[in-house]
Design a protein around this nucleic acid. Sequence first.
RNA 1: GCCUUGGUGGUGGAAUGGUAGACACGAGGGACUUAAAAUCCCUUGGGCAGCAAUGCCUGUACGGGUUCGAGUCCCGCCCAAGGCACCA
Length: 918
Amino acid sequence: MEYDFLRIEKKWQDYWAGHKTFKAGIDPSRPKYYVLDMFPYPSGAGLHVGHPLGYIASDIYSRYKRLKGFNVLHPMGYDAFGLPAEQYAIQTGMHPEVTTGRNVARYREQLDRIGFSYDWDREVRTCDPEFYKWTQWAFLKMFGSWYDNAAGKARPIEELVGAFEQGGSSSVDAASDDAPQFTAAEWKDFSEKEKSDILMHYRIAYRGETAVNWCPRLCTVLANDEVKEGVSIRGGYPVVQKKMTQWQLRVSAYAGRLLDGLDGLDWSDSLKEMQRNWIGRSYGAEIVFKAYNGDREYDMTIFTTRPDTVFGVTFMVLAPDSDWVDKLTSAGCRADVDAYLESVRKKTERERISGKAVTGVFSGSYAVNPLTGDKVPVWISEYVLSGYGTGAIMAVPAHDSRDYAFARKFGLPVVPIIEGADVSEESFDAKEGKMTNSGFLDGLDVRDAIPAAVEYVEKNGIGRRKVNYRLRDAIFSRQRYWGEPFPVYYRDGVPYPLPFGELPLRLPEIDEYKPTESGEPPLARAKDWEYEGCPLETATMPGFAGSSAYYLRYMDPHNGEALVGREADGYWRNVDLYIGGAEHATGHLIYSRFWNKFLYDLGYVCEDEPFRRLLNQGMIQGRSNFVYRIKDTNRFVSFGLKDGYDTTEIHVDINLVRNDRLDIEAFRAWRPEYASAEFELENGEYVCGHAIEKMSKSMYNVVNPDSICDTYGADTLRLYEMFLGPVEQSKPWDTKGIDGVHRFLKKVWRMFWDGDEFLVNDEKATPDELKSLHKLIAKEQEDIENFSFNTTVSAFMIAVGELAGCSKREILEPLTILLSPFAPHMAEELWEALGHRESIAYTEYPEYDPAYTAEDNCTYPVSFNGKTRFTVELPKSMDPAGVEAHVRGLEQTARYVGDKNIAKVIVIPGRIVNIVIK
RNA sequence: GCCUUGGUGGUGGAAUGGUAGACACGAGGGACUUAAAAUCCCUUGGGCAGCAAUGCCUGUACGGGUUCGAGUCCCGCCCAAGGCACCA
């Protein structure tokens, strides 16, 4: 029998599906292991070879863990709400559900061909009402909760109302945004609307006015992680800042826990660091400055991380959109300020970022430095952000580069307060040196001056210690159609939650998917979009809503009573291994952690963190090919000859090229204009140029996994994607090397079959054969746990090389098991040929016996002054020159050790020697 | 500017501080074959010497350091990729 991969792969894919081989269920007798892929957005283009990289790695890991006796949960689904389907709908009028369904079917077909061991009975789609029912449910829970800072957790809103009734607003330490203060008596007198407005400042899902990223082209708001360099990530359209009332999630309440929780996670350092930066904790102080606008005095609170520099304050700055601007603009300066605000408003985010020009205007007010009593001017500038701290700062131009630039531009004084700081050219920002001109701080080192200053302001009631976070609340509304509807209706302008029994609140049918003429979201077009005569919310939820808790739903996907039942949650707990792209570092991976922590607080899930271990797979780039056309002709020169001509580089479809050699006939047939093309060849061949680029249709460099499966088979594809290099690393796809792994699989096959003759016999294996096998077992176990799949594949090649000609059952049975995570179809086929009736997936992993791999060593004496100080064991197989080098090096060590007592000599045969001296 | 990760042959990449370049691709040579495909064998970092077996020198971006010994650890520097970007 030949290695007929097409027949074999089809056969076993059907078998797995028919027997539900990978169906997972709760089984307390076995340890669980949850392996999860970031579920894909099913785009119209289908999968290219880059997409399955992470899926293959997670599948290998899953299959390996099953062999090791774990009850593995390995599900897959689709992140199916999203912009491309909606934009396609706007253009074509086709319902996004239709296109999404079509794309999902295509994805499934492609995924199935690669032979993944998913439990498809657990598939979820975020756009399925039975799924988004639980997204809506979680939203209602957030709407009905507040964050108790004192307890460090979310609690039901009723408990907050109870506290207000008892002791007013000051009786709680709650996460909130500018909530007004009131007494218990006042609370009881508030109207329902007033109470609702106040509670909005505390709810974890709340509606509030804030500066948002508005994308006029997409007619929707976007979260911070959906905007990059001032343009939308989807589509690249300009974004402007705009104040709007939107649904938001109080993610900021969880900032501290999100940051601290990172320490216990087995994630890459770079990803943790990215989240740390995004959350951005800084320790500092809030200090109150009295500010006068001519008629009125205000207490203006600012945040600073350098309270030690208060003596160097020469002016104050307000963010243009801060509430302080209106209060502190004097009548005389009103016109100038308005003009400035207008000029700031007109800029897009992109201009604001790229311009970096120093701009600003004087407000007409002055503030009093609480430590010096000095009167300093209050300015307004866009370099201060309203969303961070209090939207107002104290400016210390001598020791802050941004303040310095501003001071120089507007001729404000620069007063250094650190000894020896030269501020003639630039500010001195470093937190080092001795304080001077700073009253009671004089002579202190900066390190000591910071706490001393904090202590002083606290004691004198002019400020307090404060920790600030960069992390903002997440904007949760999108003015779009293809997303989860909010289970909220409005009566007299007050939002009310829909009763749980009304969920899921299904997306209504509408005749067009565009916003309305008046700029309302598409849902405003729906007929009868109301509940008991009251209008329903017309915005929908953002993409990250559906992906924030999908891993919980996989645990119990058909539960109609709960997102996840107690038993399933208690058994599967959380994701042990999560594989996906690093691009979700500051989006999905923060939102999911937040969402999970919230559900944890309310007791719905038993784990605080959703993803224990995280692996970021790299991107697979495309390898483009080029032909070189001599300008103004239809003549093409081979790569090596092109320098002699004036040529144009043209992308050529990589399917017309093999090993950089162009198939000339296929090229002529590719496009009518090339039918009569002429060629200038090198050694009778046309050699193409190449470059590494992103895989994309327009560069004709997309490699489709289906075509690889057709030519080489899924097992070869799986093996090759792993062999390409470390999973975490980005690397170019190059089909050239695939022959190597395909040859390897054929070699394995030939250990079992010579034509139709089945070679496997029951002869006893030799020690050398057992050594090769057990070396491989040890290597595979170690490598898989470290995700070093590429070296495992190499180890297979070495082992199979060593075992060439060996067809002994004693070797081949375990070898087949070892191979099964990587090349499962072939392994199943061989396993069956060996006489087994059950799938190889639930066989036991062969046990590693170090006795077989023990190196045959020689002992060499290492001496000094003719006295043997210690011995070293080196493998017998080692080159005499290598032995010589080792022993000579160690003699140097012996000389160094001299007559000192040796406490410990660590000798790992043939490798490292470490000597500990008493 | 700040943070993170990396820099090894023609290519993808291996190497617990211990013989750098495993494994594979590509390339060159050979065997089998009428021929091709398939399969198998040999050579392949660079340089030098030798008829040859082989030997010697050099080599992991660059400059220093620690060490008997450094691709690996430390300091500096350059470059690349990714992230953040007025966060006070």
